[in-house]
């Protein structure tokens, strides 16, 4: 093979392979999950609450991250509620503050022996937002959800996993 041919061939190969990777990256890439990445920050449940109580809008921005897709947060706390039928658990943040964590069904099943009510655990998950921190307007009606869970505040994490 002549030198020219080799050069041409490698150029074509680079374009095809690069294009393939580019196409995959742009169109077929899976969303980032907490399960297969390291947490951006790890905090205690109580510290999270403090952050949100100080200024929930700032805290929301901080935990959504610069790209607004949600940071992978590691949270240390006690398991308050277990709902295996929904592959989820709730970490108690104290003072009616809950960290609601949802998992991939298979992941939750294979790790279910590690989840126990009252047990201290560290969970990582992608932050999706907070609820219950907004100030009520004086004329605003109380919703049924607020009526049933008075003063309850929460943040929600998705694609969770145990934070090792």
């Amino acid at each position: 093979m002549s030198k020219k041919k080799i050069i041409w061939l490698s150029i074509i190969l680079t374009i095809v392979v690069g294009g393939g990777f580019g196409y995959y990256y742009a169109f077929k890439r899976k969303p980032a999950t907490a399960q297969d990445s390291k947490p951006d920050i790890t905090v205690k449940a109580e510290e999270l609450l403090k952050d949100f109580e100080n200024n929930y809008k700032d805290a929301d921005k901080k935990y959504l991250g610069a790209d607004k897709k949600g940071e992978n947060i590691g949270v240390n706390g006690k398991i308050k509620e277990l709902t295996p039928e929904n592959s989820s658990l709730i970490i108690d943040g104290g003072n009616s503050f809950e960290i609601i964590c949802t998992f991939d069904e298979n992941y939750f099943k294979t790790n279910s022996n590690k989840f126990e009510i009252g047990k201290e655990i560290s969970i990582k998950g992608i932050y999706t937002g907070c609820e219950g921190f907004e100030e009520k307007k004086p004329d605003e009606e109380m919703s049924l959800i607020e009526e049933a869970n008075p003063n309850e505040k929460s943040i929600k994490l998705k694609t969770c996993a145990i934070n090792n």
């Binding site: 969303p31 980032a32 949802t102 049924l144 049933a148 998705k158």
Partner: peptide
């Protein structure tokens, strides 16, 4: 939440909580 006495029902969700298989 459902209130069985009145039949009132409410749902609330966070839009960012939706999970897709495709990042784009």
């Amino acid at each position: 939440v459902i209130d069985p006495a009145t039949g009132k029902i409410e749902f609330s969700l966070l839009i960012k909580g939706f999970e897709f298989k495709n990042a784009l």
